[in-house]
Computed example of a mutant assay.
Amino acid sequence: MTSQSHSWSRSQEIITRHLCMAADVEKYSCRDTPDQETIQADLVRVLEEAAVLSGLDRTAWDRQPQGDQEFAVLPLDTPEPEVLGGFVRNLATRLGESNANRAEKERMRLRLAIDFGVARTAALGHSGPAPVSVARYLNAGVLKRVLKAINSTDLAVIVSDRLYQDVVRLRGEGEGLDPARYVQVHVQEKEFNGYGWIHVPEHGPEELEPLVSASEPEPDQGPSPAPTNVVKRNKGGVFHFGSGDAAKTMHKKYQR
């Protein structure tokens, strides 16, 4: 084993947790090729401008562009309250300014997902539970529904339950995070099943709650009740057990 591969192997033994974030453009595939190229450039620009305005060094982010979206693993020393607070607010502002001179159908509207956890560099991008959960949050149907329904916004954000409890609920150490402006949602995407919290800048929970209520999991009803028209064949013929009309009819038939 070479010293370089040995060094890589040793680095893989160290478990590090990072803030992970992904942004995705709504209805990107509906645009023609020149518009897609413009949107990609605009997405990079608004993310960079929001980072600069928030005092974040985006050159240190481990970024993975994916056409209509960007996934990023942020450095270990990234202040989480600043990302959830200042960065989100500045991103919403820059999106609004960028869309000010665009026709309605040409607006760039984003979904943003953020989680914190183990993330490693891999051959095709990143590996670990945090990149996976961010992807599931980003593609959650409830987040798409919220962005589609609230036409007056250009940004819908979802954060993991872990980040909400550790950062938002504690009001972000002066970053002005208001936990009352987040609404809890249930997310079930592929093998992922968990909770997140949606926030739409400049919009309160009274607007979000009707839109997210359908995402709640069905309550556990316990074991299914026994069928009311079970049929069992025995030596003496057919016997029905239950109270359904069909059961009564067949019971009378075989009593003759």
Rank of each mutant, 00 (worst) to 15 (best):
V187L: 06
Y164K: 05
S152E: 10
G128Y: 01
D161S: 11
V159N: 02
L170H: 15
A119R: 05
V142L: 01
E106Y: 09
R171I: 02
H186T: 08
K148P: 00
L124P: 01
A149S: 14
Y182H: 09
I114L: 12
G172L: 10
E104S: 12
E189Y: 11
F192A: 10
V185T: 13
D154A: 13
T121E: 10
V159D: 00
V159W: 01
K190V: 14
G128V: 01
L110D: 04
I114W: 02
S133T: 14
A113S: 15
A140S: 15
R111G: 03
H126I: 04
H126Q: 13
S133W: 00
L147C: 01
I114K: 04
E173Y: 11
R145V: 09
F116P: 07
D178M: 08
E189P: 05
L143P: 05
P131I: 03
L138P: 03
G176L: 06
R109S: 11
G196R: 04
G128W: 00
V142P: 00
A180L: 12
L138W: 03
V157N: 04
V146R: 08
R171K: 15
G128A: 03
I158D: 00
V142N: 00
H126K: 13
A180S: 15
D166G: 07
D161V: 03
R102I: 08
G117N: 04
G176I: 05
R181C: 10
A156H: 03
V132I: 14
A113K: 08
A140K: 07
V187G: 01
V183K: 09
R181G: 11
R136I: 01
V157M: 04
M108D: 02
D166A: 14
Y195Q: 15
Y137R: 07
L177C: 00
E104F: 09
G174S: 06
R162W: 11
H186G: 09
Y195I: 10
V159S: 02
P129H: 02
D154E: 10
A135N: 12
